[in-house]
Write a protein that binds this DNA or RNA. Sequence first.
RNA 1: GCGCCCGUAGCUCAAUCGGUUAGAGCAGCAGACUCAUAAUCUGUUGGUUCCAGGUUCGAGUCCUGGCGGGCGUACCA
Length: 676
Amino acid sequence: MSERRILVTAALPYANGHIHLGHLVEYLQTDIWVRFQKLRGHRCIYICADDTHGTAIMIRARDDGRSEEELIAEMQQHHIADFAGFDIEFENYGSTNSPANRELCHEFWQQLRAADLVVERDVTQLFDVEAGTFLADRFVRGTCPHPGCGLTDQYGDSCDNGHTYSPADLIDPVSTLSGSKPEVRSAPHLFIQLEQLHPFLEAWTQSGDHLQREVANYLKGHFLHEPLRDWDISRPAPYFGFEIPDSPGNYWYVWFDAPIGYIASTREWCEREGENFDEWWRNEATEIHHFIGKDITYFHTLFWPGMLKVAGFNLPTKVHIHGFLTVNGAKMSKTKGTFVRAATYLEHLDPSYLRYYYAAKLTPRVDDLDLNLEEFAAKVNSDLVGKVVNLASRSAKFVAGLGLSQVYPDDGGLFAAAAQEGEQIAAAYENCDYNQAMRRIMALADRANAYVEQHEPWKLKKDPEQHARLQDVCSVVLNLFRQLAVYLAPVLPRLAEQTGELLGAPIEHWAESQSPLCGNEVAKFKHMMQRVEKEQVQAMIEESREEAAPAMAPSDSGDALAAEPLAEEITIDDFAKVDLRVARVKSAEEVPEARKLIKLCLSLGGTEERTVFAGIKAAYQPEQLVGRLVICVANLAPRKMKFGVSEGMVVAAGGGGKEVYLLSPDEGAVPGERVH
RNA sequence: GCGCCCGUAGCUCAAUCGGUUAGAGCAGCAGACUCAUAAUCUGUUGGUUCCAGGUUCGAGUCCUGGCGGGCGUACCA
């Protein structure tokens, strides 16, 4: 087979968070594919970078009180370390916030302008005056405006009942950034008229094997059956990103510059390694393979090919799309401890385990992948330790001083049959059907173990006259083992390395699975892989749960305090003047003529009662209140009001209106007790 | 709401174009073995292919409806 030139990317992880087990599905799937291609003797590079722009990064940096650059630099170091810990090897790991990316964005932009695809139009959005920024839909919450719905605390684009609307229509909208009420504002945005590329995209997505069939169908049914909408690719300042050269004050939306980051990262690599950039991105002979999750299908199968086409770069040969990770059959959950960071995993478990487990589960389809932790341990122990490594473990020590036989013995055709199986295993790898590849490899391991069983080397060992036979049997077993190590090398690079050391012959090429070793020395056997212990998995889950706990705590904003600054200092005697008492609401009734008031009758225990008018009508129904405990100011001078005399106050927090939160004592307090 | 995908053994998955008696691995059960990290080998139990219809000589596969699950629904990372 002639040497292919293949450029492979995985989606750029966002610089807003750490790498977790969900991300790793993709980076491992990709790493395995790249290692496979290299093992087959192809020229293959693995390119990635951090995705660093956008509102979320800006907000996060602001909250942390530091620059965006500082934030993304730190996160990039974490990402790089996490990937390295899982033996994921990139030719280059860049950043979308790089000079190379800025230049390339300019280049793309120029071509898009030249092709007359860019138009300007006003967009009306909610604007947070306090934060000084426009609000994406997810940064606004409010009440669903749909008639008869009225769900409160809903996102800016749709509610939990499935109604969709514009954030500008939300009732009582609140910015999640500042808690303030946003106002409606317009600003000019730049759009790419994708519809002009419709015929090209139709042809590209529906033919040529660039996409999995289900994905092609999805695109046809969802987007390509009608005119494509214009794509809004600009954001007004403030925005962390690249300013658009011919539109000052506007920045490219993060999804514009993120995929260009694939190219920019390649360019960095080319410059460092003295490679010809055009060979990689402007040469039809080069294959481009993108690995992505199904969540970002749209960007990579419509916008991206469109942009590449217009800017004159290679189109993707294939976009490989995978599903999401679930753990124990459910979404990753912080409270369950199944939201496991890469770094946390590595503290407890060997990366080879996860590489193998994911490989055993990955298919070419878009299906979600479940990490069942019990199965994880069982599969690793049974397949890798029990079957594969066990072959070396039960044969190497018998030939430690002897080495492998000078001539490969008769093994009944086992090695040759397994060598022949190699092409089917390779085809499965090529097709991203790692599940099938692992299945086939384990079937070979089963046959090899049966061979050991039939030839009983432990019995041959006891008879000095059989030692030549013993050497032959072990030579067969070790060669079968090595053959498996070659087939598994893309998944388990460490095992391949250890096998190379054991038999004094490094594993560097797939072809090494096709001919046995003869006469090699055999090093002293060392355990190649430990069994997974339940306790280790449990410890990892526990730690993940604990890590998540602080993150689950609400990050308290300073808005409330800012709205009402601390009062002047008082003495304890001042405080003692206020007699706060636990009271039970005996009755509660609305005051019909009053806008805000509910009339409460409070029992302080015994026969002591107070009538209090409380301004909580907007927040509470009278029937919610009857029977509950509240805290009241019991020695407040009575005040004559329009509707009667109020003999105290109930204490509550909140800004008023619907924002009223009555205080209650914890369980055990009884009416009449004073609050000290 | 609208749309897409999925539903096969206890678990994870196969099953070519619609084609014989729906197959593997793990788990379970019964033996064997003792070289090996309680590993391995042999045998074996286990199915209303989610349900109800339909098309067909023939349906896990195609069509319709239902139930259950997942996901998407464009300025969401």
